[in-house]
Design a protein around this nucleic acid. Structure first.
Lengths: 312, 312
DNA sequence: GTCTATAGCGTGATAGAC
DNA sequence: GTCTATCACGCTATAGAC
């Protein structure tokens, strides 16, 4: 009797382990397909803009039927959210190494340049994140309720189920702002900034300036009449002064010289590829398939957007 | 014979006059319908956003069939262009009275405030003009080739067929920039601006800053953590200094005080109506049906966009 | 899990009757 | 000039066979 019982128990345990292994493999496969979906979606957004992202196109790209996508994402919107989260993380990655820069003013300038460089290098990603739908922009930025939603979307249950701290790389937008504010505090402590300024407000306004430069660049065909770097330099000087390093002043002068020549040879605005090399992406940015591939701001108009369709 | 001839001639002349009168009336009617179309389109854009603008909706609104619209506009795009032109003109109108301000720095500050106020008061118009399609943004702004297209679209043949001068209110974007640059020149002449600055670049960067504030405000739910006026004041001070009038400094301080209170009571961002009164539109702006009506940045997501559809 | 098929809606634009 | 009817798309999302 004992032997029989043992065998039964063993078989049970064994079977259970096998089942777990199978379940794991299936889970891995599921995750893999999820990644393939996101990859395809990212490529479409990068190449044709977010408006051109459709379930059918994604399905075509990964050679599955549209219906399959709905086993991994509840809606097109959920895919967009996931893409946004990636974008935020990508931008933050660009920032992290710059946090090492000793001088706070230089650090801020580097951050500003990196921000603009990112936007210009990844126009459609930037558009998606900061210029499309408020719900996307707010998703990973406010640090409040929205990230919880995006976390649920990823259905990858995170360690901190508590929900309270949320400090880490889960809120990239907040992290970026914190880097800026840190630098401002240092600046203020060193009496290089008037004691009256509210660093939070200052940071927001500074951010808005950089955003304005990027956004205008992506949307307005005639925007930087001058080279982009020149405009950025002027803005940085306005906010941080040219004092610590005269370099930016000199640079801006040199760029101004170039401008007169450059302007004649570029009557109409070029697609992103041609414009990207004016302001190089920071070392942190990996050579993404994105840069220079996408028509974006250029000729082929805005890609068609999709209707919300029946929500029932 | 003479009498007959006279009668014939008289009849001919008379008929011709009548025909001309009829033609004129028809022309007037045609123009009137054109206006009605644009009115309806404007209302839709203002209320539901540009993405929700469709030929059918316009047709419904004016109680004509969709086909009729094509007798007045070749395409949806052409309607959008016309709307853009209106928007530019509207923005410029806001600027004109401010050009009277004596002190150039104060003038620039007023322009900046007016710009932001316009964007916040007319979010969907602003979006259409500066945040949607590059071809729209460029339409009335570059002053180059695009305005010609929009002029053709309006098929209202203008006086200056020559095409060369184009100085007047036909290029509102350029006019606005010229107002700014004028102020900057004065400032420079008065030695209140370093002689090294390139006023054209400075103006562009300044514009980008204001655009960034508006754009972020319209897109990012958490953007001005501080009240909008505070951010604007900080930005203006960064660009123009707080020197000529200490008022903005004091104001920004006072606003900062308010912030701590305000922030608790407004966890999530309010729709445009609630936010508009933070920064009042300038005296030049007429009480438009637009302000405060439209859901815009708020809750109901972005209205669905339409596909480009078959272009054949 | 994956597919085919399709419901159901919305779009821009046009042909042709009146 | 105006309308009805329609073409030819595109989309999201789901039902149901396998």
């Amino acid at each position: 009797v004992n032997v029989v019982q043992f065998n039964l128990t063993f078989q049970f345990v064994n079977t259970k382990m096998i089942v777990m292994g199978i379940a794991e493999r299936k889970n891995r496969q599921k995750q893999a397909l999820r990644e393939r979906i996101l990859d395809a979606a990212r490529r479409i957004v990068v190449r044709e803009g977010f408006a051109a992202l459709s379930m059918r196109k994604i399905a075509d790209a990964i050679e599955y039927s549209p219906a399959t996508l709905y086993l991994h994402f509840a809606s097109r919107d959920e895919i967009a959210q996931a893409l946004c989260a990636e974008g935020y993380a990508q931008l933050l990655e660009t920032f992290v190494p710059l946090a090492q820069i000793a001088d706070p003013a230089e650090r801020l300038k580097a951050l500003g340049r990196a921000y603009v460089a990112f936007g210009v290098a990844h126009p459609e990603t930037y558009r998606l994140i900061f210029m499309e739908d408020p719900s996307y922009t707010g998703a990973a930025l406010g640090g409040g309720a929205a990230p919880a939603a995006s976390r649920a979307a990823a259905d990858m249950p995170l360690a901190d189920e508590s929900g309270a701290p949320l400090a880490a790389e889960e809120d990239p937008g907040g992290a970026a702002l914190r880097i800026m504010i840190g630098a401002l505090d240092e600046l203020k402590a060193a009496r290089r900034l008037p004691a009256t300024v509210d660093v939070a407000v200052w940071a927001e306004a500074f951010w808005a300036t950089m955003h304005g430069i990027v956004a205008l660049n992506l949307t307005c065909p005639v925007f930087p009449g001058a080279p982009l770097e020149t405009v950025v330099s002027v803005a940085l000087d306005a906010w941080l002064g040219a004092r610590p390093s005269e370099e930016s002043q000199a640079e801006s002068q040199a760029a101004a010289q170039r401008r007169t020549i450059a302007k004649t040879s570029r009557a109409r605005k070029q697609p992103a590829e041609a414009r990207t090399d004016e302001l190089r992406a920071e070392p942190g940015a990996e050579p993404n398939a994105e840069a220079g591939t996408e028509p974006g701001t250029g000729s082929p108009k805005q890609a068609p957007a999709r209707p919300k369709a029946a929500s029932a």
